[in-house]
Design a protein around this nucleic acid. Structure first.
Length: 876
RNA sequence: AGGCGGAUAGCUCAGAGGUAGAGCGUUGGCCUUACAAGCCAAAGGUCGAGGGUUCGAGUCCCUCUCCGCCUACCA
């Protein structure tokens, strides 16, 4: 017996704990396998609403597949998030007055590990509250023991086969985090800057030369050339100029990349502090000069020791003094900032480790082109491909402490670099000279290097575990589009390289969650919706259902609390419908035959709901599946069948079959609803198992089969709808002429010469009268009896006694409808007299139009009549 | 600058060659014994603009406008 009102707080704590225990995938079962690996959340903070969406989608898919009979493994886990975590922990320590640098690597990592434990615990608690069906025994971390082996193995393989190299290269450098960043870790924004026009004279002291425009004047310290376009006539005869202030004589080179129309058409070249210049310098074999250190402090000439921005000011001043500064213009510049600490990134040449991507990416492009990895929705495929086709080498080293240390040592004796760990064995001695004295690389690997191994590493790779054999390749990856490059692409590359299989067959890409105005949620704006607050307030079932309905593979999601509240109402509806059924049904029979039209109708509706829901699930259209069941449950089951059943249960002959129907529809609905709102459905199902004899292999709804009930009765659907429309018509005309719902009126239902309709009406008269609040006479023919007002509906004609009626609406409205209907009639008629249409359109379509024309004709006659009757009535 | 996406009821969105849909909101009426977190009824739309294909276009094609996102070495 369900007690009292729906209260998620009484249900969810129990089920969230239960769900954490009962999902343990068995690789040995003969069942078909289904596997999802979670995009592991960072251990930097708590989960936000985007995580809730991401995880809910995965859970709905997992639960559906599980109920479809698959052995489902959904692997949870967390990501160590190198830079981000190091940053967060450093800040925490600073609050306590401690500095990372003073602690030293080992001590610092102890603190990080404490943080990790704390954070993982918190994330796990949050995930539990979402009622997810993950297998917690499979929980992984990108820096756990097994993962260390996997990463070392991966690095060693790539290294041995020549895909990893170390080199001096220009990278994005964060002077605050003091590490290299990959292209993807830099956020660009348009900002107000200046464009400085500086004279590079032909001779020191001379006021003649080339004007060069730059946004970063301080870099002139490292200039080793000036470039102009080969066809730029202005500079045809200029071959050398002096870099001002440092008075270095540099060549004027010709390069087609220079835009003649921008600025002065001449570009200064600073190979070691600018990406484009680095490229040009390579092609022209120019030297570079490093003028800045890793703190962003100038290390060159008179400006040594000055911060880069202080130096800029000073240099501009000095140029001005010398009259070498022509002008300064306001200019919009693209500024790159560290995605983590927002410090302005400095392009800097340094020694880094790189992964060669070109060759590795070939297969990864192929599998997506041929849909071996299929993106949902399709358009993300293009985004992926365009990035992959222009992929650049990936800088995989990071100058931080928290992460997978690069397993390479350098021999102190002979300088040989060698692998010191391949996932199985460790070495100290130099393979070349045998010396035991070597130094380990200090750098760690980019976090995404380890994340790229996720789908197979979490299943035990490089060991050929049972799990790996049973569940790999995984089935679907669910993620936001913002990490298609960061993560998805790299997983595909690594998966193909190490396992020779795609890591997943489908990539479900969902949008980002925004606030109700469409703005990005951020703590500073104060518009964040915290999933835990929402769960506290509305329950995880309501939150989950909302996220499912709103989920879209294309658009971002605008979420407001109102939406969640409305689905809380739906949970309440489920609760109350269940309460009603359990209250009224004692001994439901299985394999029963429906006895009445409404029973057959609701079963046919249920059957069609199941069919559609399944289709949507198979296409991963979760929002539509959710809407389908929502509409069935509320509009068909609650609004109609439950109401009808109240009448049916009073008739001994059909009472039992009504109860059977109520029970069956509720129990089946719970199964369809379960993937979306597992807690409330599990709770109710449990209650039902206590009271009734439910056949199920499992004690949990989560493992009960998804319904495959089929009941296709077109006639029942048709007549069911017809009778319902009769009830609606009577309600409608009652309201229109001022009767209350509870007023019992006299009504006539006109059946024309439709014998079947007449019989159906007769058989269902009791509930029709109850639900419409009328005494109904069924009469043949089409003539509205004297003293009765016809309703305005388009189906079966119904009319109610005019006694006591007060006409509320004006008949103008009907005139408007009449005019519109006549217009529509003409349109259809015209189309039907069009020979092209008759020749080219499908016969079915033509038939439909003919039928429609007939109906419109009848409608017009009816409306005219109705206006006539109502005018008479109104004039009284 | 290029690429992608969006534009449908007051709001949020679904749909997609053959009669414009839902939820929320609004208005009016109901405490009808599962549910007032509810029930009943109603109002509300030349489907962004223009052109084309078609017997027929929210739906397919082209152009444009506005909005969003992504990519790019214009210093």
């Amino acid at each position: 017996m369900l007690e009292g009102q729906y209260d998620h707080k009484k249900i969810e704590p129990y089920w969230s704990e239960k769900f954490a225990e009962i999902f343990r995938a068995n690789p040995d079962t003969p069942k078909k396998k289904f596997c999802i690996t979670i995009p592991p959340p960072n251990i930097t903070g708590s989960l936000h609403i985007g995580h809730a969406l991401n995880m809910t989608i995965q859970d709905v898919i997992s639960r559906y597949k599980r109920m479809q009979g698959f052995e489902v493994l959904w692997v949870p886990g967390t990501d160590h998030a190198g830079i981000a975590t190091q940053h967060v922990v450093s800040r925490e320590l600073e609050k306590k007055g401690m500095k990372r640098e003073n602690l030293g690597r080992e001590e610092f990592l102890k603190f990080v590990d404490e943080w990790r434990e704390y954070s993982q615990k918190r994330i796990m608690e949050q995930m539990k509250k979402l009622c997810l069906s993950v297998d917690w025994s499979a929980n992984r971390f990108t820096l756990d023991e097994g993962y260390r082996k996997a990463v070392a193995k991966a690095f060693a393989e790539l290294y041995k086969r020549g895909f990893i190299y170390q080199g001096d290269y220009i990278v994005n450098w964060c002077p605050s985090c003091k590490t290299a960043l990959s292209d993807l870790e830099v956020e660009f924004s348009e900002e107000n800057g200046k464009l400085y026009y500086i004279l590079y004279p032909f001779e020191k002291g001379l006021r003649e030369g080339i004007y060069v425009a730059t946004t970063r004047p301080e870099t002139l310290l490292g200039d080793t050339a000036v470039a102009v376009h080969p066809e730029d006539k202005r500079y045809k005869d200029v071959n050398e100029v002096f870099v001002p202030l440092v008075w270095r004589k540099v060549k004027v080179i010709r390069d087609e990349k220079v835009d003649m129309n921008f600025g002065t058409g001449a570009v200064k070249i600073t190979p070691f502090h600018d990406f484009a210049d680095f490229e040009i310098a390579r092609e022209h074999k120019l030297e570079g000069i490093k003028i800045m250190n890793e703190d962003g402090v100038i290390t060159y000439g008179d400006y040594e020791g000055l911060d880069r921005f202080v130096a800029r000011k000073k240099i501009v001043e000095d140029l001005e003094k010398l009259g070498l500064l022509q002008k300064i213009e306001d200019y919009k510049i693209r500024i790159g900032k560290c995605y983590r600490c927002k410090t302005i990134v400095e392009p800097l040449v340094s020694k880094q480790w790189f992964l060669k991507m070109k060759e590795l990416s070939q297969k990864a492009i192929e599998v997506v082109e041929t849909n071996k990895v299929k993106f949902l929705a399709d358009q993300w495929k293009n985004l992926y491909l365009s990035w992959m086709r222009n992929v650049r080498d990936w800088c995989i080293s990071r100058q931080i402490w928290w992460g997978h240390q690069i397993p390479v040592s350098t021999c102190k004796e002979c300088g040989e670099k060698f692998l010191n760990y391949d996932g199985e064995q460790e070495w100290n001695s130099c393979p070349k000279c045998g010396s035991e004295k070597s130094e380990r690389e200090k750098d760690v690997l980019d976090t995404w290097f380890s994340s790229a191994l996720w789908p197979f590493a979490v299943l035990g790779w490089p060991e050929q575990t049972k799990k790996l054999k049973a569940f790999y390749p995984t089935d679907v990856l669910v993620t936001g589009f913002d990490i298609i490059f960061f993560w998805v692409a790299r997983m595909i590359v690594m998966g193909l390289f190490f396992t020779e299989e795609v890591p997943f067959r489908k990539v479900y890409v969902h949008g980002l969650i925004r606030d109700e105005k469409g703005q990005k949620m951020s703590k500073t704006k104060g518009n964040v919706l915290d999933p835990l607050d929402l769960i506290e307030k509305y329950g995880s079932d309501s939150l989950r259902f909302s996220l499912c309905v709103l989920s879209s593979q294309i658009k971002d999601i605008k979420l407001s609390e109102k939406t969640i509240e409305s689905y809380y109402h739906f949970m309440n509806k489920i609760w109350n419908a269940a309460k009603f059924v359990i209250m009224n049904v004692e001994n439901p029979k299985k394999n029963f035959q429906p006895k009445t039209l409404p029973q057959m109708w609701i079963l046919a509706k249920l059957s069609s709901c199941i069919e559609k829901a399944k289709e949507y699930f198979e296409d991963y259209k979760i929002n539509q599946a959710a809407m389908e069941i929502y509409e069935f449950f509320w509009n068909d089951f609650c609004d109609w069948y439950i109401e009808i059943s109240k009448v049916e249960m009073q008739d001994d002959k059909i009472s039992q079959s009504a109860k059977n129907t109520l029970f069956f529809v509720l129990e089946t609905s719970l199964r369809i609803l379960h993937p979306f709102c597992p807690a409330i459905t599990s709770h109710i199902w449990d209650e039902m198992r206590g009271k009734y004899d439910i056949e199920s292999e499992s004690e949990f709804l989560s493992y009960a089969p998804f319904p495959d009930f089929e009941y296709k009765e077109e006639t029942c659907l048709e007549f069911g709808e017809k009778l319902i429309s009769v009830a609606k018509e009577i309600r409608s005309i009652k309201d229109e002429v001022g009767f209350k719902v509870s007023d019992k009126v006299q009504a006539k239902v006109l059946t024309g010469d439709d014998k079947e309709l007449k019989r159906a009406l007769e058989e269902n008269i009791k509930w029709l009268e109850k639900l419409s609040g009328a005494n109904i006479d069924i009469i043949e023919g089409e003539e509205v009896p004297e003293g009765f007002i016809p309703s305005s509906g388009k189906g079966v004609v119904v009319a109610i006694s005019s006694e006591g009626a007060k006409l509320k609406e004006s008949i103008q409205k009907m005139g408007k409808e009449l005019a519109e209907t006549e217009k529509e009639f003409d349109r259809v008629k015209k189309r039907l007299s069009n020979t092209d249409f008759l020749e080219k359109a499908d016969t079915e379509v033509i038939q439909e139009h003919k039928k429609r024309l007939e109906e419109l004709g009848i409608r017009i006659e009816f409306l005219k009549k109705r206006i006539e009757i109502l005018s008479k009535f109104a004039n009284k």
